[in-house]
Design a protein around this nucleic acid. Sequence first.
DNA 1: CTGCGCTCATACCGCTGCGGTATCGGACCC
DNA 2: GGGTCCGATACCGCAGCGGTATGAGCGCAG
Lengths: 281, 281
Amino acid sequence: METRELRYFVAVAEEAHVGRAATRLGIAQPPLSRAIAQLERRLGAALFTRTPRGVTLTSAGETLLREARVALAAVEAAERRTRRVAEAAGRAPVVLTAKAGASSELMAKLLDAYAAEPDAVEVDVVLTPPGHQAVMLRDGRADVAILHRPFDDTSGFDVDELLVEEQVLILPAGHPASTRAAMTLAEARSIPDLPLPRWPRLDGSYPEGPGPELRDLTQVLQLVRLGRAAIVLPETAQANLRDGLAVVPLSDAPRVTTVIAWPPHSTSPGVAGLVRTAGRL
Amino acid sequence: METRELRYFVAVAEEAHVGRAATRLGIAQPPLSRAIAQLERRLGAALFTRTPRGVTLTSAGETLLREARVALAAVEAAERRTRRVAEAAGRAPVVLTAKAGASSELMAKLLDAYAAEPDAVEVDVVLTPPGHQAVMLRDGRADVAILHRPFDDTSGFDVDELLVEEQVLILPAGHPASTRAAMTLAEARSIPDLPLPRWPRLDGSYPEGPGPELRDLTQVLQLVRLGRAAIVLPETAQANLRDGLAVVPLSDAPRVTTVIAWPPHSTSPGVAGLVRTAGRL
DNA sequence: CTGCGCTCATACCGCTGCGGTATCGGACCC
DNA sequence: GGGTCCGATACCGCAGCGGTATGAGCGCAG
């Protein structure tokens, strides 16, 4: 199987429509139909069922979609990492990716501690929207990432745990619920006048439902202060809170684990150094 | 980058010789030279330095070799898993791979317990030479593997620990060293008349050195009984020992962790069931 | 039930680019 | 300096990719 075939397949699977997929790929529809048919013949498996409104995946197709995404990310990663090694022969900067606006204290400690090491190399910090760090790591745009389980999918990476913490509910100061000693997630979700914000998905769209769309944490905290929303955050986020907010522990929210993650087989001395430093924090 | 290019590159890198690589690939030398040159042009990086006796990898080339192997394994896995899902639509057997002749007790318990589950599917057990299980899992020939850290590279897989154990030295009964309460690895290696056997590498070749080549555990144990060798094994292997052998604990040998490993993103209900069962053992 | 619209499949064509053979250029060795 | 062993280059034929035109199957409106 060639990566071209996999790219074509993924496009068709995602669009559920050969014509649209062809447009997206910048080719005509017939060659794409033919390429898919050829792929199916070679695999000896139907990947799509043709319907009058487009195509839908078979179970074999679903398997291939999952696997193809991993494989394509691996090929992309190979290309990008090779380019990076070639460009900055020797002391290439390490690219560290983290969620914008989170773990700032931990990150600062890590970067300071690492910079003090004798053999430290330059660290490029790339802050991305939530959820994108694992993707960056998978396709070679980043060398190390700070991830948060269980939100990020760390499968396929080597990880070191840095911090385990509980989550708390942040509400407007003076709200009736703010005096409670603890709460469950279900209770937090059902406070009538305080909806929880919705987080964007990987593609930037938002799930349906009530609650404001979360774009910027400080903006949402402003909404909380105004008595228009509540939000669930890891407990260390309290450190950055200003007045007008109350904190209630959640008894049944999943614990958040902050980890440092890197691709297996990494040989970069910078990655090794960062991970070593992180382990000592 | 197309997988064809990656396959060509890997062949040349492994042979360190364009002509031989071409033969191995079943094509002529000039197209291969051209393909490599084109790959280098597209990456904007020299991958090989040409010498009068062949070619050697640059640092960019070494990076690409490592990454390309991962990427190619992922592509192969995609193909194989899709084929398998298509062939045995529905209740496909799960392929479990393990080291031949090891963990037999644990495996039996696992398979028995799993077979007793209400929704159990068929399990194909594939016993392979040591070290091959991770490869099988990586390229899609197996769905689950029993691996042994630190010997197997579990990076890139999801794992559950099943058993942690110490290693012991097995020697002929009556040997002077057999009365010792404990020993270090270095001492074990330097017993003058009892060489440790050599384990085969992934490609089937053996490292240089003294000691018999290990092909079959029972054969080596026979050698031990005859006073011609000693061997280091996990302590549970004692259960299968017969007369004529003595056991000495090793104080500094790495602990061996038996794990059950599966590829991330696995959706097979059989894999999930096996892992769940294993976790309850 | 018939015609239209929408979708994917098929037919056919042109050209890119892969792989083939022949040959060159350079390094090393006697 | 000729022989040998490399990889690189030159050139050619053809497989296969992508293009346009058109067919075939299905759902639906009238």
